[in-house]
């Protein structure tokens, strides 16, 4: 694949999450769809403002958890009943109360791992390169105290001059053009 060139998008910088959310909400309302918010910590309202939709992570987590539970419970049952049936104080070999704790722990473990890996698989991380890191203010601020809204060039509404004017109407700290 040849390297992509040209403009990735326009990046507006805000000082507060409130300003970002208001700008993002307006942009989404005005028909922008190829846009994204970048914040140093999770701002749920920002995700909702740009049309956050449901994803498959909860389903993955549920299936992973149930698989973990079934796997450990079956393993314990197989060991105690079929592979190494031992007499513990005259209890039946299938003594389910003793199986509950490991089965539960595996439910949690598998659910957690499924959630983490499913999240990575669905959101495309880890990414080795992202054009936004070309913007110095993004590099310095996105993980500390700045809030960013990026209108991407892939959006059909995108026009370098008009979109810059549009973003500036939200009174951001700055608007910079980001190259691929």
């Amino acid at each position: 694949m040849p390297p992509r060139e040209g403009t990735y998008g326009l990046l507006a910088e805000f000082d507060t999450p409130g300003d970002l959310v208001r700008a993002a909400r307006q942009a989404h309302h005005d028909g922008w769809r190829r846009l994204d918010c970048y914040t140093p910590y999770p701002v749920e309202e920002a995700a909702e403002a740009i049309g956050f939709h449901r994803n498959k992570v909860p389903l993955c987590t549920l299936i992973g958890g149930l698989m973990g539970c079934a796997a450990m419970f079956s393993l314990e049952t197989w060991i105690s009943v079929l592979a190494y049936p031992l007499n513990f104080a005259g209890r039946p070999t299938y003594s389910w109360p003793a199986f509950v704790v490991p089965a539960y722990e595996w439910t949690i473990l598998w659910a957690g791992l499924s959630a983490a890996f499913c999240m990575l698989a669905l959101n495309g991380l880890p990414a080795l390169y992202h054009p936004l890191f070309n913007a110095p203010n993004f590099r310095d601020g996105a993980t500390t105290d700045k809030f960013f809204l990026c209108l991407e060039a892939r959006d059909p509404k995108f026009d370098l001059a008009a979109s810059r004017a549009y973003l500036e109407s939200f009174a951001p700290v700055s608007v910079v053009e980001v190259e691929y």
Partner: peptide
């Protein structure tokens, strides 16, 4: 906390 709880939800994580 009163001042914080009166702010809009997105003001704090």
């Amino acid at each position: 906390h009163l001042a914080e709880i009166l702010e809009p939800e997105h003001a704090h994580a």
